[in-house]
Structures are given as C-alpha cells and as structure tokens.
Amino acid sequence: MSSNKRLMKELGEITASPPEGCTITPPTEDMFIWDVTMEGPTDSVYAGGKYHIQIVLPKEYPFKPPVLSFKTKIYHPNVSNDERGAMCLGMLKAEEWKPPNKISEVLKLVRAVLAAPQPDDAVETGIAEQFKNDRKSFDKVAKEWVGKYAK
C-alpha cells in the first residue's frame, strides 16, 4: 500500500516534469509497469533514435530496485543485445540500490550512459571491445541500428 503511495507520488512528479528527453506513458492496468520513451541524446550516436524502455517495479519497491529493459534494440556496451535488453547500471543492483533514489534519477542516469557508454562495466563485452578499440566501426553499427530499429 505504502509502496503504491510512493509510486503515485513519483508518477505524479515524473509526469508533471519528466526528465529531459523522456516521455512517460501513464500505466493503465499495472501500476508496477511503466513505459518510457527516451530520445537518444543529441550529441551521441543515438541521436534521432526513440527508445522504448520498460520499467518494472518490484512489489517491494522502493526497497528493491526497478528493472529496466530496452524494448527497442540498441547497439550499446551496457545494454544486453537480446529480447530482454537489460541495462546494467550500478545503482540498479540490488545491493547498491538506495530507497531514496527516484525513477526520474534513474532515467537521467540511463540517458547519461547512452551519451557516454561505460565499456569497463559492460554486459556486451564484444561491443565494449569494439567501442574501446575501433570506435569508428562501433559508431557506424550503432548509427545503423538507430536507423534500423529506433525510428
């Protein structure tokens, strides 16, 4: 119950003033699943892309971290290249999650990671290697994927 209160509070805040480049579609049936559309940061290879991110909030929220998944394919070292599109963020790990964290802060961080991938903390090590050693090819594939999947 209390969790719902927190969710409603956050939802109200995030709908009223969404983080930059994010649009929140208010959840209709399940309060614990939020759909977010995030624009690729303009100064990154993902510029122009629109990414559908689903946020699944655990029943124990805010004492367990939300789970983020990219429903739109993205070529990024920190997003798993599969149907789950799981994003690996330090602050979203169960042991590092802090209950005062807000979803809008999480989304801000996601956008920052899109702009500046963290290859040392990667889920896709292959992409991370390419990002570090062959930035040109990485940029090329990433841009291709934006055109293919994120328009």
Binding site: F63, K64, A94, E95, E96, W97, K98, P99, P100
Partner: peptide, 9 residues
C-alpha cells in the same frame, strides 16, 4: 554514505 550507509544491503 553512498557505499556503507544508504544502500539497502
């Protein structure tokens, strides 16, 4: 605080 006070674990 970020490492040893605030995180859930």
């Amino acid at each position: 605080c970020n490492q040893s006070v605030l995180p859930m674990a």
